[in-house]
Write a protein that binds this DNA or RNA. Structure first.
Ligand SMILES: [Mn+2]
Ligand SMILES: [Mn+2]
Ligand SMILES: [Zn+2]
Ligand SMILES: [Zn+2]
Lengths: 137, 137
DNA sequence: AATGCAAACGCAACATTATTGCATTTGCAT
DNA sequence: ATGCAAATGCAATAATGTTGCGTTTGCATT
């Protein structure tokens, strides 16, 4: 399925801004910060980029991850999620050298033994260290 | 050991601001946001509060956790850590109702099976849902 | 107890990130 | 081709965090 269809299937209009962002996010399993994308789309208004990313998240096209330094990042949802709840229960890896964040789609989250009384709904797991490229150098 | 000694042992001067913040953080196992503390210490300057928290973190008196919404929170380090590296490898729980964050000191982090090439240094684990009080209601 | 000094503080200014309102433009169904 | 809701650009505003600097204060020393 091509990008335009993915966007339209979520009830969103197909625009150059949205096509561009989707194309970049689809190139790899990385999670991009707003600042990253702003550099790639210099002609796009900052506010438009915020709205594109928010709309994508609400539509379930992307998921949001908060980095250790509080920076919000967005990555493509590889699997098709139901509209009601889209879970991205995989581990994310944050490189301390190149500051890229990777979706480790194959590393799933364990179940934690939470004290009784607490009701767990979901969890965010962030492993940090050095990515393949940076640990080779 | 009383609070004043804990502060002075880290090479920091004992001041009313620092005593106040330490006392609040010591009351429970919760992680407080800057905004929370600002309400509790209305006479304290915002910048001073930022500096108190940063100094405490560098001294190893508190540890920093980023909430799911990107908000920075601080909690007391219960165990005494070495000055060089202070690990807080426990799970944190974020309540979606009251927005409090709790340190689950007894729930330790598992080891993840990261793809080869990636070098893991540490990890942040955040479980979210409803805390004891809120799930009872 | 008085002194001296580095550390801590208060205040103002600035930086970054994100949101909101509104007029204009555009995708797309008709 | 037309009409309209959705999307965009721009300006203003909010929230969060940092930096510089003059003043105050903790505390070691005398
Ligand atoms: Mn992901
Ligand atoms: Mn903690
Ligand atoms: Zn890297
Ligand atoms: Zn709660």
């Amino acid at each position: 399925m091509d990008i335009a269809h993915q966007i339209r299937d979520k009830g969103l209009k197909v625009t150059p801004s949205r096509l561009g962002v989707m194309e970049v996010l689809g190139q790899n399993h990385q999670a991009y910060a707003h600042a990253d994308l702003e550099l790639l789309f210099k002609d796009m208004d900052r506010v438009t980029l915020y709205r594109v990313l928010n709309d994508f998240e609400e539509a379930g096209l992307v998921h949001k991850i908060i980095d250790m330094d509080g920076v919000t990042r967005f990555a493509l949802c590889k699997h098709s999620c139901p509209d009601t709840h889209h879970a991205d229960e995989h581990v994310h890896f944050s490189c301390q050298a190149c500051h890229k964040m990777f979706c480790l789609e194959n590393v799933s989250s364990p179940v934690f033994n939470i004290p009784s009384g607490f009701k767990a709904i979901g969890q965010n797991i962030l492993v940090y260290g050095f990515c393949k490229t940076c640990s080779a150098a």
